[in-house]
Design a protein around this nucleic acid. Structure first.
Lengths: 257, 257
DNA sequence: TCTATTGTTACTTTAGGGGTAACAAATGTA
DNA sequence: TACATTTGTTACCCCTAAAGTAACAATAGA
């Protein structure tokens, strides 16, 4: 019997800043055109004792009009005006908030990695995790023998069951390692060791693509090492194409020792 | 130190449906561009333990973006988009509420009296109250001897210290009363006894103007007696109008007995 | 005068948000 | 490796606004 008042309407009024009882009361009063507190209570189920305060509040807000007397009669102000005023208020409020937020100087952030790992330990753990899960193919590019050296044994294990493609910027730097490396050539090596993005120098330490669907790029920015993991198949596939292209054409191909 | 976040901005965001902490957090994140939960906590003063939940909520709302990793980094979505979406939502909400309210069939209420008394007892009390407070002048118009008779003694008391103007529709009806009445004439009397407003017959019983600033009109609608008290400047105009009538001789002037 | 209604007051309950502390997991460091 | 710090989570408590309840005084009708 009580849901004489459309609950959806009440929820909407709540979103617009009224309380539940205020919403019920106003809606009830619109139905009744003109009524006493008790009548509103009867229709809406709002506790009678509360209706008085609520109507007082609403009248102070200018949403209902009061006809003094005994009993006091109340009348809803035209919804068109009421909702209109609320809307204007909120609109003003939104404009104001936007201005204030803009003062905090927002700048569009650079395109963000899908996954970002910022601890040395986390990076090593993650790289091992990837190496452990390779099924068919692993492409590794590195400019940093120390870093790659840490995974020498892991890579050795893979060599048997997977197609392992190891690319480096400079064969000489990696001559201590027992693998069959391919070389990219000097330009690409210099390029990759000195990327400037947003004024910060990035040095690409290592780049790994596993099974053409997951990649991890490890780089150093300042003294902070960071790794970016991308699992998007499309992206990884494109990356793989780039390295294939690098290897097949534009660069010197060599064999370790 | 903490009001690093514009409190006005937070209040605006609250009005737009965010909680205080959500507002602080979002604003803080806009300032920081990109930050961890702890950094947001540091800037805004929102309890660190809460920041996580709040950022999760905001991200579910699409107001912030998350960069997975450890620690997790957060980034505010462009305020323009965020505020824009909130505004659109509220707008939709307002339209919807207005439609729902209109379904309740609102009709513009007839112009309402300023003060309305609906009990016999209340009317008598109120009339006496007015009579008690007259300082200089009292104008009384009546078509109902029974009603006016109830205040005979009160009026007698006033006769000495005030200018008392008593006007009736028909001298014969009031011949029992010891006052100096003026008469309006038949047409006006008939008119005033048979007012139809909104299909309801109104009989004007009595109309009183005290000191040209407060008036009470007592009438009967159906079997319901009602009094309207008006304290507005309009009353002054009425008073002036009556003076004009008196001067121009619109009324039959007669003396009791 | 008596009774029902109207309006007020003080109280309890509830729910949501805010604040605090403690803890496990993750990370950095020796 | 062991240890300290940071990060993220959980479980609480507290406070407030709002909702609901009950009792009472003032009003109004009979």
């Amino acid at each position: 019997m009580y849901p004489a008042i459309n609950p959806g309407l009440v929820r909407n009024l709540e979103k617009l800043g009224l309380t539940e009882n205020e919403g019920k009361t106003y809606a009830g009063l619109v139905s009744l055109k003109e009524a006493t507190a008790r009548e509103v209570h009867g229709l809406t189920g709002v506790p009678r004792a509360k209706v008085y305060d609520i109507l007082k509040t609403l009248s102070r807000k200018g949403f209902v009009e009061v006809r003094q007397g005994s009993p006091v009669y109340f009348r809803a102000v035209d919804p068109k005006h009421v909702i209109g005023r609320i809307k204007d208020d909120l609109f003003t409020c939104a404009i104001e908030a936007l201005d204030q937020l803009n003062e905090l100087s927002y700048e569009i952030p650079r395109s963000s990695p899908v996954w970002c790992i910022q601890s040395e330990w986390g990076i090593r753990k993650r790289v091992r995790e990837i190496l452990d899960n390779v099924r068919d193919e692993l492409i590794v590019f590195s400019t940093n023998p120390e870093f790659l050296g840490e995974f020498e044994s892991d890579l050795k294990k893979l060599e048997k069951n997977c197609r392992l493609i190891l690319i480096v910027d400079d064969l000489k730097k990696f001559r201590e390692m027992p693998f069959d490396f391919k070389e990219t050539g000097k330009e690409f090596g210099d390029f990759v060791r000195n990327l400037f993005i947003d004024g910060v120098q990035y040095t690409e330490d290592c780049f790994i693509i596993a099974d053409g669907k997951e990649s991890i790029a490890v780089h150093t920015a300042g003294d902070q090492r960071e790794a970016v993991v991308i699992r998007l198949p499309v992206v990884c596939h494109l990356q793989k194409l780039i390295y294939n292209w690098l290897v097949e054409g534009g660069f010197t191909i060599g064999t370790h020792l």
